[in-house]
Design a protein around this nucleic acid. Structure first.
Length: 665
DNA sequence: ATAGGGTTAG
């Protein structure tokens, strides 16, 4: 219609442009904008807000700078662009560059400060602003409530001249977010008027403390459910482990949005149904659902969990097309995906491209290098993080310490451990101690590890004892291993991994009688060993293998190839370390079982199907066993390929007969 | 410009 118009006025051009902007078709909007014979401030503002809402802050700024005249909307547009895209310091500078801001802009910057937990900055604005409206009050109340300052929130709530639904709901959700369910419910009951957001906030509260019964009650009782209500319930069921009920609701939603999809995908992903999760991602695209930032982040996280690199790359491609890649949130998810898929160089590229790196970006990169055994790189990142002025938090330090641990940097790790309280005010928690005990234990300093454990200011947990058990295994200290295991069994009688670890320790010292007892004990207690399995991604499809697998369609080819490899490996000097099998069986039988460990099957299959020259990436849900580790080293040399194995603990890069972990994991 | 649902580090 626009094309057929005999005469177009400025107004019709503007309508067209804002239409394209609304549909996020920025290219089309820009093309029209460039063709306009004459532009007014409305046209410029439309373009500005288009860029801003799609995260293209720098383009927005360019438009803003070029505008011949600016009105309050333009100024607020560029301010909001900075705020919404996390560039709060740019926003602050802009705000300070002039004085006659409208209330909306004050509120906008205040909200930005609140989101970044800069409560004092927000408060200063609030005190200074010439005129406050309800939004100003609500922003402050929300900010305090969401940052745990409930009494201050409550004070402002009492003080505020007018309370609307926003104010009340902010209080409900503040209490909910701080786990004060009863208080939340009291406010909820007192509300003069509720809307669906208020109901949803209360339901979300019950969901958080996994009271699905109460959540369901409210859900059924609420007068008008919207898609968020459904989404909350789906998430709740998924997180409480009832994926069937979650799916049931998902199938019954009258209107799905991209969040419903993200919720169900996350539900499947987190409950270990990764394949179904990816299947749904494909369905979602087919459904024509518009992918938003969160759907991307969620799907990337699924890819990261199952290390589906090829699929992850495709999602990355779509991300770039959608123009989301520069944002920090999605950027972090992307970064984590590459890290956890073992593509550390691409991870680093992504990291470099995140414009405003937050503490999570840095932590992810550090932990990524650490898991790859690139301790030095991790520490370099850590140092530059400090140079840029980002304050390390407790999670940063877990990454740093585990980097030291995986690289054997005992002295440096120790130094960081003792200086972190002094330098950054981070008190060592159980995870830090576990890292340290791991660090000392791996290095063979079992006495120091025990001493440190004795001096912990709190009781060691099962994971900490687990580190000691692991170290005992590496260094063959059966006595200490038994002691640690005994304590772990008392704490966590169902922790199958620990039984296996101890069994392996017995087996390694030839104590087959004790191995047998362990098996009986596991059976008596009804502990089931988590089945080990490995998987590879070949042409977008995930192929899963478990011990002695006989289900794969290519099994004959795989077994035949393994036989062949076995022969070459033995010539290369490989001796299978049969003493590590859980069972005391005849030598030959043991060897047979080992040969069919899932990681070997997956590696063999990958060599057969992935074109030469490309690295082979295999994932395993448990730690890689010693025999397979040694076997894969030989295989990498024989076939001349890079084999990357991600086990539950770290990455192993097998190349030319060696592994990046230096046999130290 | 303010309230609810999904998402990123370990």
């Amino acid at each position: 219609m626009f094309d057929k118009m005999p005469e177009r006025d400025l107004h019709s051009w503007n309508i067209m442009i804002s239409g394209y902007v609304r549909n996020r078709n920025l290219g089309a909007a820009r093309a029209l904008f460039d063709r306009m014979p004459l532009r007014d401030v409305v046209s410029w503002n439309a373009m500005l807000s288009g860029y801003a809402q799609n995260g293209n802050v720098d383009e927005a700024r360019e438009i803003f700078d070029k505008m011949p005249n600016k009105n309050a909307i333009s100024w607020n547009g560029i301010l909001a662009a900075y705020v919404q895209n996390g560039r709060i310091e740019d926003a602050r500078r802009l705000f300070e560059s002039k004085s006659d801001w409208e209330v909306v802009s004050w509120n906008c910057l205040m909200g930005g400060f609140m989101k970044r937990k800069k409560l004092d900055d927000a408060r200063q604005l609030f005190e200074k602003m010439p005129k406050r409206d309800e939004v100003s009050w609500n922003t402050m109340i929300t900010g305090y409530a969401q940052n745990g300052e409930l009494s201050e929130a409550r004070r402002l709530f009492e003080e505020s001249p007018r309370r609307d639904v926003f104010t009340w709901t902010a209080m409900v959700s503040g209490y909910v977010q701080n786990g004060m369910l009863d208080e939340a419910r009291r406010i909820f009951n007192e509300m003069p008027e509720k809307n669906s957001v208020s109901w949803n906030a209360m339901i979300a509260g019950y969901v958080q403390c996994t009271r699905m019964d109460l959540a369901r009650e409210l859900f059924e009782a609420m007068p008008c459910r919207n898609v968020s209500s459904w989404n909350t319930m789906i998430t709740g069921y998924a997180q409480s482990g009832d994926i069937a009920q979650a799916r049931n609701l998902f199938d019954r939603i009258p209107w799905r949005d991209s969040i419903s999809w993200a919720a169900i995908i996350a539900g499947y992903a987190q409950s270990g149904h990764s394949e179904e999760a990816l299947h749904l991602f494909v369905e979602m695209k087919r459904d024509g659902e518009r992918l938003n930032r969160c759907a991307f982040a969620c799907t990337l996280s699924t890819c990261a969990n199952i290390a589906a690199l090829e699929l992850g790359k495709q999602v990355h491609g779509r991300l770039v097309k959608a123009g989301f890649e520069s944002g920090c949130f999605v950027g972090n998810a992307l970064l984590a995906m590459y890290c956890r898929c073992g593509s550390i160089d691409e991870a680093h590229n992504v990291f470099e491209e995140i414009v405003e790196k937050d503490v999570i970006s840095w932590n992810t990169m550090i932990a990524g290098y650490a898991r790859h055994g690139f301790g030095k790189e991790a520490l370099i990142i850590f140092e530059s993080m400090k140079t840029v002025g980002i304050k390390p938090d407790d999670i940063t330090m877990v990454g740093v310490l585990s980097a030291c641990s995986h690289t054997g940097l005992v002295d440096r790790g120790t130094e960081y451990f003792y200086s972190m309280t002094r330098d950054y005010g981070i008190k060592a928690n159980a995870k830090h101690y576990t890292c340290m005990i791991d660090l000392l234990g791996r290095a063979g300093r079992l006495d120091d590890a025990q001493n440190l454990m004795g001096n912990m200011p709190f009781e060691p947990d099962a994971a900490t004892w687990g580190a000691l058990l692991g170290a005992s295994r590496i260094h063959g200290n059966t006595e200490l291993g038994e002691k640690a295991a005994k304590i772990i069994f008392e704490m966590e009688p169902d922790n199958a991994g620990m039984y296996v670890l101890l069994s392996n320790l017995y087996a390694a010292s030839g104590r087959w009688g004790d191995v047998g007892k362990m098996r009986l004990k596991m059976r008596d207690k009804g502990v089931r060993k988590v089945p080990g399995y490995s998987w590879v991604e070949v042409q977008n499809k995930i192929h899963t293998f478990s011990v002695g697998d006989s289900f794969h369609p290519d099994k004959d080819r795989i077994y035949a190839y393994l036989e062949e490899l076995e022969f070459q490996m033995k010539r290369d000097g490989y001796i299978s370390s049969t003493k590590l099998v859980l069972h005391d069986v005849e030598e030959e039988e043991k060897e047979h079982m080992l040969k069919y460990h899932s990681e070997k099957l997956a590696v063999a299959f990958a060599i057969l199907t992935i074109p030469t020259g490309r690295p082979i990436r295999v994932m395993k849900n448990l730690r890689v066993c010693e025999d397979c580790h040694s076997a894969i080293k030989h295989i990498s040399k024989i076939v001349g390929r890079l084999i990357i194995v991600r086990d539950s603990n770290r990455f192993h890069y097998f190349n030319g007969g060696l592994c990046s972990c230096g046999d130290y994991w």
